[in-house]
Amino acid sequence: MAVLCACGTGGGNLGRPSCFPVFDVTKQAILVEYLKPDGSINGIELAGLTGGILDQTYLDARVKDVNGKSRWYPTPELKNITDERSEDITETFDDTSSVFIQEGARSFSGLIIKGDPVLLGNLQKWRCLTIGVFFIDKAGNLIGKKTRDGYLDPILLQDESFSASLIKGTDTTKQKDSLSFIISQLENDANLRMIEGSDISANLLGVGGLVDVTATTVSNITTTGFDVQLDTSFGGVTSLIPAEGMGLADFQVFNNTTSSVVTVTSVTESTVTAGLYTFVIPAQTAADELIVTNPAVGPLSKSLDLAQFTVNIP
C-alpha cells in the first residue's frame, strides 16, 4: 500500500511505552470471506464483544455460523511459518543511487501436519474467493487490521494468490498440506492490530473448524421416518469416518413439496452402526420430497456441517 507522506505535520513520534505487547509467531490462520453478503467487511465489531472480551459464545457464533458466507474457517495448527515482505521495489539510477517506489509483497506460507487430500480439496475451494485472514499467534492473540473505527477486520489477500498442495510423506517425513498466499498490496503493515489474548476468554488457540458431513445412504423410508448413514469425508473410500454424536437440534427437515418445515419427532443414533441415524417424523404424504439440512438458525451445536440431502417419501 502506498504510504502517504505527512508533509504538513512532520514525521511521527518515535517514543514507545515502557511495556507493550507484540505479535508472537503465527500458529493458526482463520480464513473468512472478506465481504459479507451485505457488502460490508466480515470483521469483528468490537462493541459486539461482551465486556470487551472475545468469549466462547462469540467464537462459537463465528466458527459454527450456519451461514457459510460469514463463517470463520480456522486452519489446523501451522508449522514452518514464513510471513515476510519481499525487498522494496526501488528505482535505481546511473549513479547507483536509488529511490523507494513501494514495499515488496508480503508472502505467507505454512504447513499443516497430517494434511490430507480431503482437507486439500477444501482449501482449494478458497482459491477463487475474495479472502480475508485473521491470525492466531502463539500467545493466543487474534491479529487483524484496524482501518475503520470500532472493528478489527480480516487482512485482505491478493486475489488468486491462495494456493494449497499436498506434500506426501517420505521415509523420514510426515504427509502435509502446504498453504500459501500473498497479502494484498492494498494492505499496510502499520494497520495490523490485535485483540490481546488477555481479552480472549474463548479457547481460541487450537480452535477447530467444521467437519463436512454427508448422507451416504438413506434407507427404510416410510411416511413416518427414514434411516440415514452420515459420514465425514475423511477415511478410506470403503471406510469413511462416521459422523457421530448428532442429535435432534442438528437437523432441519423441510417438505419441499408443501414448502413447510417438518418438526422432527425424534432422532436415534444407532448403538450398533456408528453414524446411522433413525428419524421419526409426523406422517407425510406419498411422493413428497423432504430436504434435510443444518438447522436454519445457528450457531451449530456441533462442529459438524451437514450437506443437505433429499428424502423422497414412497
Binding site: L248, A249, Q252, T268
Partner: peptide, 16 residues
C-alpha cells in the same frame, strides 16, 4: 426451531 428446551434424551434417542 429453537429446540433446546424441548428435547428429552432417552437412551440414544432425542425426542421433541
Amino acid at each position: 426451531l429453537n429446540l433446546n428446551n424441548k428435547i428429552i434424551k432417552i437412551g440414544n434417542t432425542e425426542f421433541n
